[in-house]
Structure formats: structure tokens, C-alpha cells
Write a protein that binds this DNA or RNA. Structure first.
Lengths: 87, 87
DNA sequence: AATATTTATAGCACATGTGCTATAAATATT
DNA sequence: AATATTTATAGCACATGTGCTATAAATATT
């Protein structure tokens, strides 16, 4: 182990918020009749990424979210029409 | 230079979307009377990060956006109530 | 105008998002 | 039940988001 005391910064990872977004995305995708693969293709992102987002394994960037919004033809206003849980 | 042909993947960076979000955030923050420093403190993120977001230098993660939403006491529905420009 | 406050930049180290490939697990179809 | 399709995981390499510190630039206050 390194004796040098490295500072462990703690970054935000908003478990609850990420879970809520995952559920919202999955719901909309299914309602619109997309498979993950189709959505990934339309959005220009990878299938693995779509799966990771829907299972709340990662904390996507806005660009990724914007791509999903456009691919589903769902406005951001609608995509984010869910309650953000308290932290 | 390395002769090995490494693959240059191109990640999404949604310039227009990021700019639109930056403008929306700045507008709301000012309307609510926060300084960047106050907002950063309330959201538990760094001042430099708030400045980078408002000047569209970075592509923030959802967790960061959620923290801003809670700090300003503005719902996601409201925070994302803007037109996502075409890509 | 001088001073104080606020916002914008820069550079570093570290954490982690992303694409890719492969494969397993789960679900749907025949 | 067997087969096909869809979703979930894993591991790697690389790109980049984030916090921190410092400082400059811009704006507001006195």
C-alpha cells in the first residue's frame, strides 16, 4: 500500500435519482415499442450503454440523455416528467 | 508516434444541447438570486464545475444535474422545460 | 476611480462514462 | 421443449467529468 496519503474525493453518485431515471427510460422505451438495440441504434449509442442505463449501473452524461430523447422523439420536458427522489 | 493503429472512437458531445442546458441553468439560477458559489455550495459540487457547466465547457452527468435541481428547489420537469435543439 | 465580489480559466490527479467484444441469462416465439 | 431474440454482465482501453487550487477577467459596490 502506498504510504502517501492520497486524498479520496467523493464524487456524487445519486443512486435514487439514477434509479428513477432508469425506470422512466425503460417505461418510455417499452411504451414506444423499441428494443434496447433499436433505441441504441437510433440514438447512436451502444447497446451495452442502454442496458447499463436501464439497470442503473452508470450515471450517464447529458449528451447521452439528449441522444435518447431525440431517438425516442420524446421531449426532455416529458422524459424528465417524474419525481426526483430525495437524496 | 505509435505505429499501432489505435481506434479513435467518437463519443457524443452534444454542443447545441449542452449550450441550451447551460443557458437554462444560468437563467434559473439568476432568477432565484443565487451566485454560482452559493449554488455550488447548496448542491455540494464545486464552484469550478458550476462555472464550467454554465459556460458549456463540459457535459455533466445526471447526478450533477440532479444535485442542481434539488439545490435550486426546481423540479426536473421545470429544469428541462426548454427546447432541445436539433443536432 | 478604487475596492470587493463574482465569474471564467487553467492544470493537475483521480474517478468514471463510453464503445467494443464476447457471453450468459432471461424472455419470447415457434 | 427447442430455438430465437432480447436483455444483462464483464473486462478492456480510452475519453472525459469532477474536485481542488490558483489566478485572471469581468462586474458590482462604495
Amino acid at each position: 500500500m502506498n504510504t502517501k496519503a492520497r486524498h479520496k474525493r467523493n464524487l456524487i453518485y445519486d443512486e435514487k435519482g439514477i434509479l428513477a431515471f432508469a425506470a422512466r427510460l425503460k417505461k418510455l422505451r417499452k411504451e414506444l415499442g423499441f428494443t434496447q438495440s433499436q433505441l441504441a441504434f437510433e440514438a447512436g449509442i451502444s447497446l451495452s450503454q442502454v442496458a447499463r442505463i436501464e439497470t442503473a449501473r452508470i450515471n450517464p452524461t447529458l449528451s447521452t440523455v439528449f441522444a435518447l430523447s431525440r431517438a425516442m422523439n420524446v421531449s426532455l420536458h416529458e422524459l424528465f416528467n417524474f419525481e426526483l427522489p430525495d437524496n
